[in-house]
Computed example of a mutant assay.
Amino acid sequence: MVLPPSTQTLSCTGDACVLTSAEDFTPQDLNLIRRQFPHRLVTLDGNVITVWPRTKGEQ
Results as ranks from 00 to 15, higher is better:
residue 25 F to V: 01
residue 44 L to Y: 02
residue 44 L to C: 00
residue 22 A to E: 13
residue 53 P to E: 05
residue 36 Q to C: 01
residue 24 D to Q: 03
residue 7 T to A: 09
residue 26 T to S: 15
residue 11 S to L: 09
residue 34 R to W: 02
residue 43 T to K: 06
residue 27 P to H: 06
residue 14 G to H: 07
residue 39 H to T: 08
residue 55 T to L: 15
residue 26 T to G: 11
residue 47 N to G: 07
residue 1 M to H: 13
residue 42 V to T: 03
residue 24 D to W: 04
residue 11 S to Q: 13
residue 24 D to K: 05
residue 53 P to V: 04
residue 4 P to S: 05
residue 57 G to S: 10
residue 11 S to P: 05
residue 45 D to E: 09
residue 34 R to E: 03
residue 33 I to V: 15
residue 47 N to E: 08
residue 58 E to S: 05
residue 49 I to H: 00
residue 19 L to H: 05
residue 8 Q to D: 10
residue 22 A to V: 11
residue 22 A to C: 09
residue 54 R to Y: 14
residue 17 C to E: 05
residue 45 D to V: 00
residue 15 D to Q: 04
residue 49 I to M: 01
residue 34 R to A: 12
residue 57 G to I: 12
residue 9 T to P: 03
residue 41 L to W: 09
residue 36 Q to L: 04
residue 7 T to L: 07
residue 57 G to F: 10
residue 57 G to V: 11
residue 3 L to T: 11
residue 59 Q to N: 08
residue 37 F to Q: 07
residue 35 R to T: 08
residue 53 P to R: 07
residue 33 I to H: 02
residue 34 R to G: 02
residue 31 N to H: 10
residue 17 C to I: 01
residue 13 T to Q: 14
residue 29 D to H: 02
residue 55 T to I: 11
residue 20 T to A: 12
residue 20 T to K: 13
residue 17 C to N: 06
residue 33 I to E: 00
residue 8 Q to T: 15
residue 4 P to G: 05
residue 44 L to A: 03
residue 2 V to H: 09
residue 35 R to N: 12
residue 58 E to R: 12
residue 23 E to K: 15
residue 6 S to I: 12
residue 6 S to D: 09
residue 53 P to Y: 06
residue 19 L to P: 05
residue 11 S to C: 08
residue 38 P to C: 06
residue 17 C to D: 04
residue 19 L to N: 08
residue 14 G to E: 07
residue 10 L to T: 06
residue 15 D to T: 04
residue 51 V to Q: 00
residue 54 R to N: 14
residue 7 T to Y: 06
residue 11 S to K: 14
residue 37 F to H: 11
residue 57 G to N: 11
residue 14 G to T: 08
residue 10 L to D: 04
residue 47 N to H: 12
residue 43 T to M: 03
residue 45 D to M: 07
residue 4 P to Q: 05
residue 50 T to F: 03
residue 27 P to K: 02
residue 1 M to Y: 10
residue 45 D to L: 07
residue 19 L to W: 05
residue 58 E to Q: 15
residue 17 C to G: 03
residue 30 L to D: 00
residue 12 C to F: 05
residue 27 P to S: 01
residue 12 C to M: 09
residue 48 V to H: 14
residue 26 T to M: 07
residue 37 F to I: 01
residue 17 C to V: 02
residue 2 V to G: 08
residue 48 V to Y: 15
residue 7 T to V: 06
residue 18 V to N: 10
residue 11 S to H: 10
residue 41 L to I: 13
residue 22 A to F: 10
residue 27 P to V: 03
residue 42 V to E: 00
residue 40 R to F: 02
residue 2 V to C: 07
residue 55 T to V: 12
residue 36 Q to Y: 01
residue 53 P to S: 06
residue 33 I to Y: 01
residue 2 V to F: 09
residue 40 R to V: 00
residue 22 A to L: 12
